[in-house]
Design a binder for these strands. Structure first.
Lengths: 213, 213
DNA sequence: TTTACTTTAAAACAAACGTTTGATACACTT
DNA sequence: AAGTGTATCAAACGTTTGTTTTAAAGTAAA
């Protein structure tokens, strides 16, 4: 048995823990997720979490992966299309990551929970993921409405865009009860993205007009 | 000592519990709020909760009061102004109830928490409060864009409006870290209301145009 | 095989939670 | 004065939580 194989074997429990933790955390949030359920799903002993990661919180921090979200900004920026189109693309891709249950959106769902239910890791999440994509959208908005907009108004525009997107996730428990038949399949997500995109572009145009007067 | 005085005295503990519970629940959410802190604030014994209300959950249900929110719809409807103005008024008053810390917004904050963190009482809240005001806004939107809009698109418009408003509350832990200086005083709330109002009216106009084509 | 080290296992830990108990004090009726 | 029902209290209950302990099993080098 080679050294690599040994590592792979000994790392199996650690890897299984990470996979299981991502699922359980994203389904129940940090606080409601129990180490016992995570270990049960990962098929490891209860003590494994504190053996591989010192604490439940450190395990949670280890499950975080900001790359998909940050990659989204870079991907959108690479296209040489106009700012409006880039905003539409961003909203579409962001919603896909946020709402699609089949993809690796677990990451995004996990971070979305942090918004409403802060944990000690929230500071890191804001600094490394949320702040950059807020800045990214702020730059897009600046391009679209021109730079004559105030800092406060710019912030409100960014909040309007994210607010519309996040509501579908934050409000899910309510939405599910209001519209029990509503499912977030690909067609529905595309329709939502189209709506929010057009809605927001019209809103931004109005804001730009206001400031020109 | 009259019978009425006796009742007032014996009801004091119950009333203090309700007041304290509203504060603690709205600050920490249902789950994070502890019966011990509620009792400490109310200056009653720990057994009082189960004495007056059978359980923590029943106490929570007793703290709910949908009237301020429903009254808001009626008040806005009484003005005989056009639908656009009524929507602006609603957004303004809704944000005031949602964000103002000094008023009796505790109720609204408490219910807002339910959105992201469902408890067994959520069903009641949705049925008696959230569904009616969603329907109220849906009616306003219908008036503004005309009835030619599809049910799904109408739903998305309502979500866009509420999403923008709720983001300021749901996202508060994040917003606080992104913009530490931002405070929700009356001037800021009015500015937010003005922004969301104009942003949304422009969005709705765009939606109406789309459906006309 | 012995030795040293890593990984797993069951059990127990301390703390916090909502809830219940049983006793006590009080006001009012008979 | 005795009896009755209400309100309050400290204390403890039974769970559940994340974490730790202690020992056993497994693995690789000597």
């Amino acid at each position: 048995m080679t050294a690599e194989t040994k590592i792979n074997l000994s790392e199996q429990a650690r890897e299984r823990l990470l996979v299981a933790a991502r699922v359980v955390f994203s389904e129940n949030g940090f606080q409601n997720a129990t180490v016992r359920e995570i270990c049960r799903r990962a098929e490891v002993n209860i003590a494994a979490i504190n053996y591989y990661f010192n604490s439940k919180e450190a395990l949670f921090a280890a499950t975080l992966n900001f790359e998909p979200l940050l990659a989204l900004c870079k991907k959108v920026n690479q296209g040489s299309i106009c700012a409006q189109e880039r905003l539409l693309d961003f909203i579409h891709d962001f919603l896909m990551q946020l709402l699609d249950e089949k993809e690796f959106s677990v990451q995004c769902q996990l971070m979305a929970r942090e918004l409403a239910e802060p944990t000690p890791v929230l500071g890191k999440i804001v600094q490394e993921a949320i702040a950059p994509i807020h800045q990214f959208v702020a730059n897009l908005v600046c391009e679209i409405v021109g730079k004559k907009i105030s800092e406060a108004e710019l912030r409100r525009c960014v909040f309007s865009i994210f607010g519309q997107c996040m509501y579908y996730r934050h409000g899910q428990p309510v939405i599910q009860r209001l519209h029990p038949k509503l499912r977030y399949d690909h067609r529905e997500i595309e329709a939502i993205a189209k709506h929010i995109g057009e809605f927001s572009l019209a809103g931004l145009k109005q804001v730009a007009q206001n400031k020109c007067q």
